[in-house]
Design a protein around this nucleic acid. Structure first.
Length: 294
DNA sequence: CACTTGACCTGTCCGC
DNA sequence: TGCGGACAGGTCAAGT
């Protein structure tokens, strides 16, 4: 599940690997993964090159010299993997999680004049890549609704509180997963942040004490930064632009740790369903706030 | 409007 | 061993 740290890791990798490369061909299997017309592809993608790789929340924006951009959402199982001289292919000692490409999950293939190939793989076909004018990306309905970037300085504690104002009666986990509250948090970092702040995921937003929300605000920043340092989390499918895993999951305290001892108090970590997601919690460390205090 | 649930997909795992 | 069903969880549409 690519969340902010995973998408940021892919962005950084692509920034090193594909900028300046000329696109000579594009192949795709289903319009669901790449809905543009051949006319647009011919006019704005072929014989252009990438000039920058940006990210907003979980969305990647690969800007082209044509004034258009490839906007990409990896959703749950999407991968963007570059193969070429600069990266290690299958069989290299620094082995990739995935094998020869293309494979049956390959949805889009971009070939470069310089010899490399960029693969967009997506087992479950939830993700998409879309060509659109760079200038209107920020006006896309999806982008307009996104909340603040948690790692920007402008994401202060006060901003966090004001974003939560709209979601007072829901669970704190549902609020963190809401991309209009905050952009980029998914299931892994929601569980890990709530554990760090000692808040039970089923706590109702308006009942959580300010001191705990302060802890949560700083935990989100720290955990996302730490995960980026580790190249993100490879839980199932995620790989970076070179096809390699991220190692944050080795440092996770509760995510996928059900039936194991809490690293703080040794009580068993349990798995619940909150906001429709598998949710990992230590009931002894994480306090449940369901009554409004004071 | 706030909030919850189901649909979209496919691969994997678990129990019979 | 094969097979049905539950599960994985980002986002949107449709429901209350």
């Amino acid at each position: 599940m690519p969340e902010l740290p995973e998408v940021e890791t892919v962005r950084a990798g692509l920034s090193r690997l594909i900028i300046g490369k000329n696109i000579i061909s594009v192949d795709f299997d289903t319009p669901k993964s790449f809905p543009n017309t051949q006319t647009d592809i011919d006019a704005f993608l072929l014989n252009t090159h990438f000039i920058s790789a940006r990210r907003r929340g979980k969305v990647l924006m690969l800007d082209l010299s044509s004034g258009y951009s490839l906007m990409i959402h990896l959703k749950m199982t999407g991968q963007l993997v570059y193969r070429g001289e600069e990266s290690f292919g299958a069989g290299h000692p620094n082995d990739s999680l995935i094998g020869e490409l293309p494979d049956k999950s390959t949805r889009v293939t971009l070939k470069f004049a310089q010899g490399g190939v960029l693969f967009f793989n997506d087992q479950r076909k939830f993700g998409w890549a879309r060509l659109l004018p760079t200038a209107i990306i920020s006006k896309e309905p999806f982008m307009m609704k996104l909340g603040p970037e948690p790692l920007e300085d402008s994401f202060t504690y006060d901003r966090f509180i004001s974003q939560l104002k709209r979601r007072q009666n829901t669970t704190i986990k549902a609020a963190l997963l809401d991309q209009t509250v905050l952009a980029g948090i998914g299931n892994i970092y929601a569980d890990e942040s709530l554990f760090a702040a000692k808040i039970h995921p089923q706590s109702i937003v308006k009942c959580v004490p300010q001191a705990k929300l302060r802890l949560l605000h700083s935990a989100i920043k720290e955990i996302l930064l730490f995960s980026i340092e580790k190249g993100g989390s490879t839980d199932r499918n995620y790989v970076n632009a070179e096809g390699k895993r991220g190692s944050y999951i080795d440092f996770a305290k509760v995510f996928r740790k059900e039936n194991m001892p809490c690293p703080v108090c040794q009580h068993e970590i349990i798995k619940l369903r909150v906001a429709g997601r598998g949710t990992h919690v230590c009931k002894y460390c994480q306090k449940l706030y369901k009554e409004k205090i004071k």
